[in-house]
Every structure is written in structure tokens, then in C-alpha cells.
Design a protein around this nucleic acid. Structure first.
Lengths: 190, 190
DNA sequence: CTGAGCATGTAACCCGTTACATGATTTC
DNA sequence: GAAATCATGTAACGGGTTACATGCTCAG
């Protein structure tokens, strides 16, 4: 949908496709995913449009790195995109859709199993974000409100992730409790 | 990614493509979107695989309705999918990515403008969910824990949406406050 | 010498969006 | 008579996933 824009945004400083992939894994994982096989051709097309420039640089191990940097016209495109305001309403949360139709699974125990797996996944993701937060906190004395702009905004999204995961987790626990209660009630009913 | 499965799930009771579209708009909007131009061919392909059956029924207005119902093999596919556990980690939240790179917009006032628009959108979406919740609450005396299974699970996702939107909104307010504070601080610094 | 990490990509396929095309009925 | 709602779709294009292909270096 907007990988081109996101790559432009990340190329605030020069990076190769491989570098960008690592940024996705480290910092964007909780709200965006991208494969190398998608990143490479997208970078090429951005270069062809004149929004990025490449330079080849030798690497210690492996083939030489193609390092991209944003051109001024690339920056224009990016700021114009952001100036258009937030893009919302196209979310696709598969696991929520799964819960929506969970009654298709007829046995309550299997429904519970599903919710338990979901809770475990949330616990794991929350822990990952918490450790990222802790690391950041101890590494930079300017944390959180005196960080330079770039780090400040990245940190805001981390906070959002933390609050989202914590909220999801609470919701999972609540659901599990309610499903459990219903299960007991119907068993007594029989 | 999984529209076929979602359609199978919604076809818990017979419906046409047009009906399904309305279900998306009414009940799934906060976590999934689908166009008619995507729904129609997907239904056709599900029918070709034997997971759905069609019957033509005349309509009051407009062309005759093609009403789909899930076959037993369709139900098998659905429960197998749900049995595989939750699908997570493929979220694409464009607006979060936009905040991540909001420092590309250099003027603090424009950054604030972006966050204000985001907050307004969240207020609107939260209100929509709240009114859906209120409607449900007053319409069914079994609300919330004695609802039949199907309605119960749909209601759980509504609760999640409410908590998510409220969380997003709180986060927006917090961000706006912090950005404002930084803005004042740097102005004094100059 | 095996496996992990570095580093690049292509090809086939599926998913999703936007635009186009049609036509009846009801409401204002 | 215009606009909204009902109801079906197709076509062109772009976004995203999975599988395939290559080859180097370093650590164990």
C-alpha cells in the first residue's frame, strides 16, 4: 500500500536494502512487515523515479552493498504524503477476524485453546517491546522528552505498541474468563 | 491474505455478495475492509472448490441475487484454519508508520496538525463503536454473557475495538501534549 | 566442513484497489 | 428527473508472499 513511502521515510540516512530489512525487524515489527524480495524491487523503482540515489560500496562479507540515499525530490514526495494526513481505515487484523467467527469451532475447549494461544503470543510481543523500551531508557539520558526529533517520534510508536499489546493482553484474559464461565454454565445446564 | 476464510466464516447463514459487503461495513469495519469487486470473484472461486453452493433468488429491485451457503467441506476448511491458531505478525498499520517518520516534516506545527487529525479520526471511530455497543446492549436482554455463541464472539471483537480505539485516543492526546511541550521548549531555546 | 550471517536479486503466483459497465426501483 | 439503493460483475494495475538462485566469510 505504501511501502515506497515507508522506505523513503526510513532513508533519512543512507542504507542498503539489507539494512532496511533489519530496521523493519527491530523497530517496525509490531506494526509493519516487509520481505527483502519486496524491498529490493521497490528500491529500484524509487531510484528510477529519481527519489533515491544509489552508490555501490564494497562489503566485508558477501556481495557489494547498494547504498541508497534520498534525493530532495524524494523528500518532497515524503512530506507531501505526510501532509495528506493519516491513512486510516484499511487495517486487516486477521486474528480479530478469527475471533469474530470463532463460534464455527463447536467445542468450547478448542475455542479456549485458540484464545490461550493468542494470549501467549501477546505476552511474548509485549515482553519484546518492554525490553526494547528498557534498553532505550537506560541508553539515552535525554529519554524520553528531550530526544532528538527522529528518536522522539520512533519512541512514540513504541509507546503505542506497548499500550496496544497490554490492552490486547488484558482483553484476552477477560475473554478467557468469560468463555470459561459460559462453559461451566452450559455444562451445569446439561 | 485470508478473505476466502473470512467469507466462509461469515457464511454461517446464507448470504449474497452484496449482503456480505454490508456485514463488512457494519460489523467488521474496525478490523477488516473488503470491496465488492474482490468479494464477487472470491465467492465464485470458493464455489468452484466446492466450499460454497449457490442458488439464484429473485430480488425486489435490481438483478437476481446469488445466494451462497457453506457446504460441509467448506465448514471443514474453516475449522481447520481456526484450529491452526491465531494468525499474527502481519499487521500493516499505515498511520503508525507515518508517525514513525513524522520527523521528516520539519515544522512542529505541521506535526501537531497531523496528530490532531489522527485524534479526530479516533474520536469518530470510537463514537461509532460506542453507539453500536449501546444499541446491542439495549436490544438483547441476554447481553453480554448469555448471548448465543455467534453473537458472543462478535461482541468480544466489538469490545476489543472499543478498548483499542480508546487506547489510541489516549495515546494521541498524550502525544499532542508532549509535542506541544517540546515545541514551547525549543522556542524558548531560540 | 557445516551453518549462520552478509548481500544481492528474479519469477510465479495470489491478494487488493480503482475504474469501468449495466440496469431496475424507489424516494425526493 | 435526479439521486440513492439494490445487485451483478470485469479489466487493468499494483502490492505482497513464497520459492528459487547465487556466492562469500567467519565461527565452531
Amino acid at each position: 500500500m505504501s511501502l515506497p513511502h515507508i522506505l523513503l521515510g526510513l532513508l533519512d540516512e543512507p542504507a542498503s536494502g539489507y539494512d532496511l530489512k533489519k530496521i523493519f525487524e527491530n523497530a517496525l515489527r509490531h506494526f509493519w512487515a516487509a520481505n527483502l524480495s519486496q524491498i529490493y524491487p521497490t528500491l529500484k523503482s524509487l531510484e528510477e523515479k529519481g527519489w533515491l540515489e544509489v552508490s555501490e560500496a564494497p562489503s566485508e562479507k558477501g556481495p557489494s552493498r547498494r547504498v541508497y540515499r534520498r534525493t530532495t525530490s524524494g523528500t518532497d514526495v515524503l512530506t507531501e504524503w505526510l501532509g495528506g494526513g493519516p491513512e486510516i481505515g484499511t487495517e486487516r487484523l486477521t486474528w480479530v477476524a478469527q475471533v469474530f467467527m470463532l463460534s464455527a469451532v463447536d467445542e468450547p475447549l478448542r475455542q479456549l485453546q485458540f484464545m490461550n494461544k493468542l494470549r501467549d503470543a501477546m505476552v511474548e510481543r509485549l515482553a519484546a517491546l518492554e525490553s526494547a523500551e528498557a534498553h532505550w531508557k537506560s541508553a539515552d539520558p535525554r529519554y524520553p522528552d528531550n530526544l532528538p526529533d527522529k528518536a522522539f517520534y520512533r519512541h512514540l510508536t513504541l509507546r503505542l505498541g506497548l499500550s496496544r499489546m497490554a490492552g490486547n493482553l488484558r482483553w484476552c484474559e477477560e475473554c478467557i474468563g468469560r468463555i470459561e464461565k459460559r462453559r461451566v454454565a452450559t455444562e451445569q445446564g446439561n
